[in-house]
Computed example of a mutant assay.
Amino acid sequence: MHSYGQFCGLAKGLDVIGDRWTLLIVRELLIRGPCRYTDLCTGLPGIPTNLLADRLRDMEREGLVRREMTPAPTPAAVYALTPRGEALETVIAALGRWAAPLLANPHKDDVFLPHWLVLPARLYLIDRSPRQAPVRVEVRDGDHRVTLEAARGRVSARVGPAEKPDTVIIGQTPIAWQLLLGKIDLAQARKAGLEIQGKTTALKRFGVRPPTKAVFISP
């Protein structure tokens, strides 16, 4: 980890999080919670394993992550964010909003993993009817599951299946995201290959936080 050698908050911050892959490791831990080393490798396509080990070591030294053991009967070493690491969520959110227009023209070699839906869902979706009963939507893309819930005026998102979902969207996550953003309607979504199970009215519960130009187009 190199230092800019400047007495400046921005420079000091970049000394800690400015190296390549560091913020993407934080992204994975924000989305998925504590992760095994192999899970981080899977969630960070293209990262050399030795570089991941170096970054985790640096982040642990700087107090951003901690290494801990899961409980028995199958204990395993996992990496988790510390409170200081979790505080980077607002930084990542601001950077994600700033970079949203750059997603309008994806490169043909760009990789997309379905669980990455979690962060933009937290950033951009709002609960249109906070006084109504909660609704849950599950997005299924192959073996991947992401659950979205609108309840009491906020939208939460997490990796994993939904308990008693009101609606299940089956198909490619980028197309499901276009549907949730209101950029395509149900007919267009089905034509693009999505299958919608359950109450389609539940989808109307989700709105988009203005102003936004959020896009999520499949590479």
Rank of each mutant, 00 (worst) to 15 (best):
V139G: 00
A133T: 13
L95T: 09
V155S: 01
E149I: 03
I175R: 14
P120R: 10
R152K: 05
A157Q: 07
R128C: 11
I170K: 12
A176R: 05
K164C: 04
N105R: 11
H144F: 07
A133M: 09
P174S: 14
P161Q: 07
V146W: 01
P101H: 01
L125H: 01
A100D: 15
L125G: 02
F112V: 12
D127M: 01
D109H: 10
V139C: 06
L125N: 00
W116Y: 12
P114G: 07
P130S: 11
H107M: 10
R128K: 15
P174N: 14
A157R: 06
L148S: 04
A94R: 15
L102W: 11
V159K: 05
A157G: 05
N105E: 13
D110F: 00
D110C: 01
I169D: 01
F112Y: 14
D143V: 08
T147K: 11
P106T: 02
D110G: 00
S129T: 15
P161H: 06
A94N: 13
R131W: 13
A94D: 11
S129G: 00
A150H: 06
R131H: 13
L148E: 05
P165D: 07
P106A: 08
W177F: 15
V139R: 00
R158V: 09
P101T: 02
W177N: 06
P101E: 05
L179S: 06
R122D: 03
L123E: 15
Q172F: 10
R128Q: 14
H107S: 11
H115I: 12
V135M: 01
L117C: 01
P134S: 10
L119H: 14
R145F: 12
V168I: 15
A104E: 13
V111P: 02
L103R: 15
H107L: 14
R152C: 06
P120M: 13
R158L: 00
E138N: 08
A104C: 06
G171W: 04
P130R: 09
P161F: 04
D109L: 13
A151T: 03
P114V: 04
